[in-house]
Write a protein that binds this DNA or RNA. Structure first.
Lengths: 244, 244
DNA sequence: CGCGATTTTGAGAGCCGTCAAGATACGTGG
DNA sequence: CCACGTATCTTGACGGCTCTCAAAATCGCG
C-alpha cells in the first residue's frame, strides 16, 4: 500500500483545525497506520453486511454512509468529509450495518482493526478521542432523526444543507462562503427520506428565499441566520474535535 | 444519595445476560458509583440543552430519549431499558442534545462525569466497553433512520416493535413471549415520525396480521418471523453486551 | 457533437396529517 | 366499591402534502 504521508507531518493535523495530540501518541499513530488507499468517485469503500478488516480516516474527498432495504430503497445515514473517522462499528461488531461509498476521488489513511484494542490499552488519550468521535456521530444521528421524523420538507432541506455547510466550514472546506458540494439531489433526497422529485421542488422553494444558492456543484451561503431559522435550528458550539 | 446495591453483588451483572468484567474493574466500578437515584414515571431525568454532571446506568424501569423542535414537535430517538448506559454525550459535550424522561418508576446507578477520564486512564477494558456501547447506539440509530426515512407506515411499526421486543428479550424482560411495554401510541408515533391517529390505524392493520398482540400494556409476540418479514428486516446476532 | 446522468416540470393518485368527537381505560377520592 | 376526571385509544371526514409515472430540458464528459 503506497505510503506518502507521515503522521508526524500530517497536513490535516497541522492545519490547526483539530485538537492536538502529544509526541508519544503521534508515534503510536505512525505505527498504527498501515498506509493509504485511494479510490475513484463512486467506489464502494465498505459493503453493507460485509466484515471489514480496516478502520479509515478520510484524508481527502467526500463519501457517504448508507443503509438499504431488500427492494433497493436507500437511506443516506450521513455524509463524510475530510478528517472523518470511518468504520468503528465495523471494528467492534462482526458485520457492517451500513455501506460506505465515495462521492469524489478519495484518499484514506488505513488502520488495522485488530490493533484498536492496543490503542485503548496503551493510549487512553486516543481511546478517549475515539469515543468522543463516536458520541459526536451519535449526536449527529439524533439531529438527523429529528429532521427526518419531525421537520417539514423545507425544514429538512434547510437543516441538512446547513449541517453540511457547517461541518465543512469547520474543516476548512469553505472559502468566501462557497463550498464544493459533490452531492446530487438524489443523495440529498435519500438523506432526508423524500423522493427526488419533491426534493427538487422543495429546493426551488428554498432557493427562492435567497438564503442559499446551489448550482454547478457549488453551494453558496447567502444568509446563514435565515437558513437556520427556516430549519428551526440553532447554532451549537462544539469544541475543537480530535483527529484519529 | 441512598446506596443499597453493591457493584460486587449487582444482580444485573450476575444475571449472566451481560459480559463479565474482572475483579479489579469491579473494584473501580464500586468506587466510580456515587449511589442510586429513584424517580417516578414521567420524570425528566435529563433536560434538553442542560449541562449534566452525571452518567447513569438504568438499573430498573423504562425511559426514553427525545429531541424537540421549538414549536413542540417531538422525536423519540430511542427507548431505554434495563442495563442501558445513559449520558455519554452529556459527559463529553457542554450541553445535552436530547432530553430523557422515565416511562415507569426507575432506579438508576449514578456516576460522576468528571471521573470518566479516570476510567479511560486506568481501565482500558471498561473504556472499550463504553465505546462498544456507543457504537451499538450508533448502529441502533442507523436502523431507526432507515426506518423513519424509508420504511412504510406498516414496516415502521413492525420494525420498531420487533426491535423493542428483541432488546427486551436480551435483558431478560420477556416471559413466555410476553413483555410489559410501558409505551403509549403517542410515544411510538413520535419514534417513527407519524401522527397518533395514523399510528393507531396502522397498528390495527398490524394486529390483524396476527403476528403480535398488544393490549393492556402487554405485548405478546405471536409470529416473530412474520413480523420480521413485514418489517423487511433480518435478525442480526450481536455478541453479549457489556454493562457499565 | 452525442450520450448518459442529473435536473426540472406536470399530472394524477393516495398516503397521511389535522380536526373533532366518542369510547375506553386508569387513577383518585369519596 | 362506586363515581368521576383525565389520559389514552378509536373512529370518521376531509384536505393537502408527497409519491409515482412520464417526459422534457440541461449538464457533464469523451
Amino acid at each position: 500500500m503506497p505510503r506518502t504521508i507521515s503522521c508526524h507531518k500530517c497536513p490535516l493535523r497541522d492545519s490547526g483545525l483539530f485538537r492536538g495530540i502529544d509526541e508519544c501518541e503521534l508515534d503510536f499513530m505512525e505505527s498504527f497506520k498501515l498506509g493509504e488507499l485511494t479510490a475513484d468517485a463512486g467506489s464502494p469503500l465498505m459493503l453493507e453486511g460485509a466484515n471489514a478488516a480496516h478502520l479509515f480516516t478520510l484524508f481527502h474527498g467526500w463519501a457517504f454512509r448508507y443503509k438499504t432495504l431488500p427492494d433497493g430503497r436507500r437511506q443516506v445515514v450521513n455524509f463524510l468529509m475530510r478528517g472523518d473517522f470511518i468504520g468503528l462499528q465495523a471494528s467492534l461488531f462482526e458485520s457492517m450495518g451500513h455501506g460506505i461509498e465515495s462521492l469524489t476521488p478519495v484518499r484514506l489513511c488505513v488502520f488495522p482493526r485488530d490493533r484498536l484494542w492496543g490503542l485503548f490499552e496503551k493510549h487512553a488519550g486516543l481511546a478517549f478521542d475515539v469515543t468522543w468521535l463516536a458520541a459526536r456521530e451519535e449526536r449527529a444521528l439524533d439531529d438527523q432523526l429529528l429532521t427526518v421524523g419531525r421537520r417539514t420538507a423545507l425544514e429538512k432541506l434547510a437543516f441538512t444543507i446547513w449541517f453540511l455547510y457547517s461541518r465543512a466550514e469547520r474543516v476548512g472546506l469553505v472559502n468566501h462562503s462557497k463550498l464544493d458540494l459533490p452531492v446530487t439531489q438524489q443523495h440529498l433526497a435519500d438523506a432526508i427520506g423524500m423522493s427526488v422529485v419533491h426534493t427538487n421542488k422543495t429546493l426551488q422553494r428554498l432557493r427562492s428565499t435567497r438564503c442559499i444558492s446551489w448550482s454547478q456543484g457549488v453551494l453558496e451561503m447567502l444568509d446563514e441566520d435565515k437558513l437556520l431559522s427556516i430549519a428551526k435550528a440553532g447554532r451549537e458550539e462544539l469544541p475543537v474535535r480530535p483527529l484519529i
